[in-house]
């Protein structure tokens, strides 16, 4: 009886000891090379990814420049055709107008800038999430600007098109894959006074945003320039 009991205890102890040893070895084995390869691969791997991103961005900038160059060549073809034949002058005007509307080319004009900021979050308040700018806040401003006659709108310099999307994650906003950071600046081209008034109207967008703890600043701009869709926004 006692022998059996002792054997069992020893067996259990040995088992636990074995488990512990294997665990230690494993974690030592894992932890040492793994932390090393982790610090290597995770300080190196992210670096590698970072490098790749930079290379990709560089390549994209070059393609964007090429696009602008070809656009200019095409425009000069069109100019010469319009100059040669009177009837094409109107057609050329239409083309240029539509290129501004679609965002194919950079545009400039008077307008407004609406700046949205997270409100100051004090420790002890309920939920930090209630104090940051969300995409619905940006969208609300954008919709109000369009409703008030904005001809072109950009978020942090990135021109909006018919198939644009806006994503907010904390202080980061992504517009059509272009990432930028808070504060969020929404620029619009149109009648500066009308646009500013529309946003500041009592009970309007500004009040609603302030209610949501978003800081809103509006400024009229005599002249603002917006990059074309294929270009990276200016406010990077």
């Amino acid at each position: 009886m006692t022998i059996k009991r002792r054997q069992i205890s020893i067996a259990v102890v040995l088992f636990v000891a074995g488990f512990a040893v294997s665990l230690t070895i494993q974690s030592a084995n894992d932890a040492a090379p793994a932390t090393r390869s982790d610090t290597e691969s995770s300080s190196l791997q992210p670096e590698e990814i970072q490098d790749e991103i930079l290379a990709e961005q560089e390549a994209n900038r070059e393609i964007a420049e090429e696009i602008s160059a070809v656009q200019r060549e095409i425009a000069s073809f069109e100019d010469s055709i319009a100059a040669r034949e009177e009837e094409h002058y109107n057609q050329l005007e239409d083309i240029e107008r539509l290129r501004m509307i679609t965002g194919d080319i950079p545009v400039s004009g008077e307008g407004v800038e609406i700046r949205l900021d997270d409100s100051d979050f004090n420790e002890g308040q309920d939920n930090p999430n209630e104090f940051i700018v969300h995409e619905r806040h940006i969208q609300k401003v954008v919709d109000e600007l369009y409703a008030s006659g904005a001809e072109a709108v950009a978020v942090n310099g990135q021109r909006l098109a018919n198939d644009s999307y806006i994503y907010c994650v904390g202080p980061v906003v992504e517009v059509d894959g272009y990432t930028s950071f808070a504060p969020f600046e929404i620029t619009a081209i149109g009648d500066a006074e009308t646009l500013e008034e529309a946003v500041n109207l009592g009970g309007g967008v500004r009040d609603q945003l302030v209610n949501d703890n978003v800081q809103v600043r509006t400024d009229q701009l005599n002249e603002t320039e917006m990059a074309g869709l294929h270009e990276e926004g200016a406010a990077q």
Binding site: I74, Y178, H230
Partner: peptide, 30 residues
């Protein structure tokens, strides 16, 4: 962090695709 970076990389590659399409189209017009 790595996942976020990888997502950024995918975004850039997506954009490259779009820019290349746009460039090809314009070159054809040209």
């Amino acid at each position: 962090d790595t996942a976020e970076l990888q997502e950024d990389l995918l975004d850039e590659k997506d954009r490259r695709q779009k820019l290349n399409d746009e460039l090809a189209h314009l070159q054809e017009v040209y």
